[in-house]
């Protein structure tokens, strides 16, 4: 009989239990009350109203994407209305000018050198070009990592909805890092 006749995966090759690890981490570091993660037992659901090929699709990420610019000759293409609030990036910027400012990622396992691995702007442009989706708005959205559930639900979420409505989008792709 071979060791693993049914081809089971190794027991530790499973989705990383982040909530458990983070809790244990902070407890070990001596920070008292564990964080209470947002939890619901159900979820809202809105079906697409038309075929994807007729939909305008937006993109939001939390990778703190920014645009390189020359401060001598240009102004920052990103205008942030609020301190670490929801912001927008002109969608016609060349991808090579995008970069991430976040430090919240797995530095041992990977890097943030390729924007399309966390903010798939080129892949979305291709989907528009080959007609899988009808279009995208003329700006991409960004959000910051936020510990305050209240701030997310009362300020940031309504702001994203405002962007979606102003841009007339039919669906939103959301990429946390």
């Amino acid at each position: 009989m071979p060791d693993n006749p049914y081809g089971f995966a190794p027991p530790d090759d499973r989705p990383i239990p982040y909530m458990h690890r983070i809790k244990t981490y902070y407890q070990t570091l001596g920070y008292g009350k564990p964080y209470e993660w947002a939890h619901y037992v159900d979820s809202p659901f809105t079906p697409l109203k038309k075929p994807l090929s007729e939909c305008k699709v937006g993109l939001i990420g939390t990778s703190e994407v920014a645009v390189r610019f020359d401060p001598e000759t240009e102004t920052d293409p990103i205008v942030e209305d609020d301190f670490r609030g929801i912001y927008a990036i002109p969608a016609d910027m060349p991808t090579e000018r995008f970069y991430s400012r976040t430090a919240s990622f797995d530095r041992n396992a990977t890097h943030l050198d390729d924007v399309n691995a966390y903010y798939p702007v080129d892949r979305l442009r291709e989907a528009v070009a080959d007609g899988r989706v009808a279009g995208m708005p003329n700006r991409f959205y960004g959000a910051y990592n936020n510990y305050s559930q209240r701030k997310v639900l009362t300020q940031e979420a309504p702001k994203v909805l405002e962007y979606c409505r102003a841009d007339g989008i039919d669906a939103l792709i959301m990429v946390p890092v």
């Binding site: 979820s43 919240s104 940031e156 994203v160 039919d170 959301m174 946390p176």
Partner: peptide, 23 residues
């Protein structure tokens, strides 16, 4: 935390009529 932020926003805007997908 990014994942929680995005999840909460996803629920909110979906509730207000915009379909979402989280990657």
């Amino acid at each position: 935390m990014c994942h929680q932020t995005v999840s909460l926003i996803s629920r909110y805007i979906e509730e207000h009529g915009v379909p979402t997908v989280v990657i």
